[in-house]
Design a protein around this nucleic acid. Structure first.
Lengths: 268, 268
DNA sequence: GGTTGTGAACATATTCACAGCA
DNA sequence: TGCTGTGAATATGTTCACAACC
């Protein structure tokens, strides 16, 4: 809809590919660890290993940010940490609110990773009047009635929804109306939001189902391999028990969405 | 590596694209909701809207499973529920263990979505001796010492790691050695695992960082738009405040990994 | 008429392989 | 020599548009 064709935006603006953006936090984490160990420089090979990707991908990713490395040497750790942080917008402070302080909401509130990287939990909000005022993660839970006021007074633009599925859509509408433009949704529902609002979802059940799919497939392969009668018992990677501890690979870690995988199923 | 060229597997085997697999649970959820309302059939258009994708994508996805629709009519809800469930391997029971019963682990144990779709929490495991025997979600927490026994006695092939980052790698090794071949990792670390083991990760901090990137970009665009002086105040989607409640779109929901997005930044 | 199923076009992402530079 | 940065090749994913069919 909108405009007819959607070419490439011509002058190759600052268009960092989405896949690259999704990996920057990974690199940042690896770099932070190196920084804490006072490692001055890393090669793409080493850093890639630490982040669990391959080095060509990493170099390509970095090439979108600029030329921050030194040929023959590698990347300056501190410098890269800064550049990636800046690119991700982590040099500024992002106040977030968590709505829905049940088991999960409380876990999120207590999660150290939130505050670690420029994110500050500005408020915990729950619809249950009995929760109001109760301390969770050293912070008093506030009632949903004050949601709009909290958002605007704290300049919150990122909201985390950890409510039951039934409440999520309505909560998102209130958050958005109050000024939130990015939502991290833990409720197992599709949120319908106006254009310009970003939604990312985390769904435990979906992740498990994807794993189940691959598990099932493994079982099928195993059976097929056994039927085809390769070697004797325990021939080709029998999965259970005996697992050979060699060949460890820091395998590419799938992370929710599609990332090239599918290890060539059903040989022929 | 493996074989030289990796064409399409010739006879169009059962190679369902990873991106499609990742969406099947979404369709399944939408279909389940329809089923509960006793809706007999859906069109690709309706179902796509409910799942938050576009209809062409949905039809393409289904075409990989087979021809389960009827032209001019749509899809039979019950039939599709069954077919997708089977494809995902949800017609069988998957016992899972959750390791690390802190705030997050407890939240996961209590999460209804787990048991909803063929997954059964077989055990809760924690390294803290003080936790052992304590009931969480109506189940006694067991000590890590018994991990191997629990895995093998229950035939567990899927493990959920909700431990602190420092313990995750070691836990994964024990799980794998005991027979687990799929891991859902909530700890903010890259797990290094042998080939054949699937790892999916869920990382709150990474999701927030990706949102921050887009937030920052929005702010930049807003400023640029204001500077370029298009229309008067509140011209092109000012994001904060005034949000026009029209134009709601059930926008494509990003889900962790890269999914085509990037709404044409920096107009020109 | 209405809707699926799919080839072909397009878009994005990954990997290869090597020129270019410290 | 060793490593980055990147064009070109490949692979994967999405969208279009329409023939096939109910």
């Amino acid at each position: 809809m909108a405009t007819g064709r959607t070419h490439r935006p011509a002058t190759r603006s600052r268009g960092i590919p989405e896949a690259t953006v999704a990996r920057l936090p990974l690199y940042l984490r690896a770099l932070t660890a190196l920084s804490e160990r006072s490692v001055p420089t890393v090669s793409s090979e080493e850093l890639a290993a630490a982040a669990g990707v391959n080095s060509a991908k990493l170099r390509k990713d970095f090439s979108y940010l600029g030329s921050y490395g030194t040929r023959g040497v590698g990347y300056d750790v501190e410098y890269l940490v800064y550049q990636i942080s800046r690119e991700l917008g982590l040099t500024q402070d992002w106040p977030v609110v968590i709505v829905g302080i049940g088991n999960l909401g409380a876990a999120l509130a207590n999660y150290g990773g939130f505050s670690a990287r420029g994110f500050r939990v500005a408020a915990l909000i729950d619809a249950d009047p009995a929760m109001a005022g109760k301390p969770v993660a050293g912070m008093a839970v506030q009632h949903t009635d004050d949601l709009e006021k909290i958002i605007s007074e704290n300049g919150v633009s990122i909201g985390v929804i950890a409510t039951p599925a039934g409440a999520a859509q309505q909560v998102s509408e209130r958050l958005i109306a109050a000024g939130v433009t990015s939502i991290l949704n833990f409720a197992p529902t599709v949120l319908s939001v106006p254009e310009g609002v970003d939604v990312r979802k985390v769904d435990l059940s979906i992740e498990l189902q994807i794993l189940a799919f691959h598990e099932q497939r493994k079982a099928g392969e195993e059976a097929a391999a056994a039927a085809a009668g390769g070697s004797s018992v325990g021939g080709a990677a029998p999965a259970a028990a005996v697992v050979p501890p060699a060949g460890r690979t820091t395998a590419e870690q799938r992370k929710g969405g599609p990332e090239g995988d599918v290890p060539a199923v059903m040989p022929a």
